[in-house]
Nucleic acid binder design. Sequence first.
DNA 1: GTGAAAGCGCTAACAC
DNA 2: GTGTTAGCGCTTTCAC
Lengths: 335, 335
Amino acid sequence: MAKTVEQIAKALGISITTVRLVLNGKAGQYRISAKTQSKIDSYVAEYGYTINHAARSLKLNKTDTLGLIIPRLSNLFFSTLAEKLEIRCREAGYQLTTSCTYSDTERENTLVETMQQRNVDGLFVVPSSLQAQNHHLKRFTKPLVFLDRDFSDSEVALVVSDNVNGSAALTTAMIDAGKLPLFFMAGDIQQPTIRQRLQGFTDVLAGHGISENSAWVLTARHNRREDGQLLMQRFFELHQDAPPAFIASSLPVLEGALNVLRERYGYIPVEMNIGTFDEHPMLGFLPNNTWSMRQDEDAWVEHAFQAMTLGMEGETSPGKSVIPMTLTHRRRAAV
Amino acid sequence: MAKTVEQIAKALGISITTVRLVLNGKAGQYRISAKTQSKIDSYVAEYGYTINHAARSLKLNKTDTLGLIIPRLSNLFFSTLAEKLEIRCREAGYQLTTSCTYSDTERENTLVETMQQRNVDGLFVVPSSLQAQNHHLKRFTKPLVFLDRDFSDSEVALVVSDNVNGSAALTTAMIDAGKLPLFFMAGDIQQPTIRQRLQGFTDVLAGHGISENSAWVLTARHNRREDGQLLMQRFFELHQDAPPAFIASSLPVLEGALNVLRERYGYIPVEMNIGTFDEHPMLGFLPNNTWSMRQDEDAWVEHAFQAMTLGMEGETSPGKSVIPMTLTHRRRAAV
DNA sequence: GTGAAAGCGCTAACAC
DNA sequence: GTGTTAGCGCTTTCAC
């Protein structure tokens, strides 16, 4: 097993070049004798041959590997994205290697350096901040495609969802269904994605002439379950009852918020109207009216991979791709 | 940027060895002059130095990379496992690279060959079948640690949950709460994990002198949402009403089963008692009594990494690790 | 049709 | 304290 080209050649008493030509399928092209070919073939069938990827990389200065750096894999949106991107990369002959930052900027920077050392041919990154993004641009010397966070740097290759319009559509759908007042439980509004979702919300409310909307917005520091809990706890410091309708800025925030309700009441009030970003089959477990605004991972992958291909071909950056979102409504369960 | 050791040495007019010693932190040990050191340091500060990992790998015949092959990342259990294993590997200085099989044996075999070519130092695999497992053992020449599927091959390094006892405990808890009859909706019972869960169930029922339990078991071909749907549809071909209590053999099966109920009734009957394997925060969205049997990813990671370490140190296989599961009960929501 | 040789950037062993 | 060298296994180029 795992013979090298040289070992095969020596064992068979033929030259390295000949073996190589056969192994690379160039036998016909160079008119290698059938006898030599079958000698090589049967040797390989017996002992096997595994190309040494490190040697190839060293010579060609490419690894046929792409990197993906995301906040966490245990977030369904990112794990789905990783899955689909891996499939797309493999189709094109690339191995994708994924690592998580856990929203730690230092870790993120380290990961980029690691990817650089390992000489990946290109890198997809969800950057935690504009500084981090600039760090990567400086340190990483091959094509970079940024995902999910729009820091308004028009030069970079970037794929994001159309969060402003998606949020506006979600808000409009809930208002049209008569669900007012409508609260918005936002995680970290420093983060562009969340900020844009909040903006879509306030835009629509302003368009409806609702000026008190700032009272309907609650914000937290991060986007985790715990932040959702804090948000709902804060809500109860300000109000007597559960909100008749609210939007969570992401699924973990929703999980935390509903958890507080269930602890407080022993149940989740069924008459409550719930909006959220990101879709999940388990939203159907809720008996409530729910609206979820889904991000289109397939379109993300196509745009991101296309941008990477252009970058690797040396084209200039394709700039920003803004992917539309789609709304899923689940009607309140009959009783 | 990205100078090689040789370039640095030439630019500074000193020898490659000297530069190397400084870069590797051996300056003190070999008493390199402070002047030389600072010359090198400032050059690196200016132009940077990125080690060429391919060259290092080629020379040392190791990549400081481990592979992980799982069915899918969009399954929360596996994505959590991947996350925690990545963290553990990085602590020990290894990069983890994860790929998915989508339960396709051929793809799985290809992935193992790819990992072999890329010369990963070791491989964690969730094998789709005993044949696949044997294929890997034959083709992969470095340490292998298998996960999640117990094909009763006592020689291999393997980490699994204690599915038989876990399932027995789950079944017992539901029976003790008076939830009979209790149905079991199983996905693919060819797969050892599912078979063992089913076995824990039938064992307990037999222990309670319930002989008709075979009528309470429904099985499907795979373990996906669609299979859960089929199972619940089949249930309704045999019964008039929704099951008063049932156990799903995994979360996707549960999602599919509940989906059918919601379609049929417009709601999920709140008096139904639900058991499932794998824990998820969104199970709290259900107003029902639920019991979920969780797998302990942290323990999996510790045992798996330990087994890998032993393998890399050339020790003999540590054999099978069986990890206990823990039960979470959510009480039916008050009204 | 087949062979030989240089070189990718690193490590390790040895020389001065 | 510093310098030289061989060689990991591959690709590419040129030679016969």
